[in-house]
């Protein structure tokens, strides 16, 4: 059935209007990415920090497939949505599934969900030591290779660079206390404390 010239014109106008609107939307998105309003800095980051290879793979395959789809459609004699082979879908499926499984593995370990590189945990966080005796403290560090600084910030006794606390030989009144702190110049703002009771 032949369409009237008016209907053809209307179709054309609607088509151009939609294209222009979508085009403007696309340009706005691109501009906002360019000026930083749409922040992509954590595009590849996992929940606990650090870039994810599964996300990177998904990103690459998404772009590859998008460009492939575009090239296939524009090279056709009459533009139409092409038939997508199962092997192409399987590549996308592998990439997406890998990302999901990676997420699942990550969420199976609660420790991995805490922000990376921002935490120090002292162990033990409280101890009782006899006068003149020692107590070894250790630090659980989220950032591999971080330099550690042990300090006694209150009370009696001393602590060395390896985390070995030494109680004073005598304590007044039979008991005393000390507070030690672990920090790292490589993890700004991360500290942990332990309280020591010195009892004769």
């Amino acid at each position: 059935m032949e369409t009237s010239p008016a209907m053809q014109t209307l179709t054309l106008v609607c088509g151009y209007t939609i294209c222009v609107l979508i085009g403007l939307l696309g340009l706005v998105v691109l501009w906002k990415i360019f000026d930083g309003s749409i922040d992509l800095s954590e595009l590849l980051d996992e929940t606990g920090g650090g870039a994810s290879m599964s996300r990177f793979q998904l990103l690459i395959f998404t772009f590859v497939f998008a460009f492939s789809l575009f090239l296939v459609i524009v090279s056709a004699k009459t533009p139409a949505f092409p038939n997508i082979p199962g092997t192409v879908l399987s590549l996308l499926g592998i990439s997406g599934s890998s990302y999901l499984v990676s997420k699942g593995i990550q969420f199976s370990d609660p420790a991995a969900l805490r922000a990376q590189g921002t935490e120090i945990v002292i162990s033990p966080n409280k101890a009782t030591v006899a006068p003149g005796k020692t107590q070894q403290f250790t630090a659980d560090v989220s950032k591999a290779g971080a330099k550690l600084v042990w300090e006694k910030i209150a009370g009696d006794g001393s602590i060395d660079a390896t985390g070995m606390f030494t109680a004073p030989a005598t304590v007044t009144g039979g008991h005393s206390y000390a507070t030690i702190q672990i920090s790292s110049p490589d993890i700004p703002g991360a500290v942990d404390l332990a309280v020591i009771t010195i009892v004769s």
Binding site: S41, G48, M53, D109, A112, A144
Partner: peptide, 17 residues
């Protein structure tokens, strides 16, 4: 600008780094 730190490293609380 897009963080790629740790893309090749085995990071994480139990990773070797």
């Amino acid at each position: 600008q897009i963080n790629t730190d740790g893309l090749f490293r085995d990071i994480g609380p139990k990773g070797s780094g």
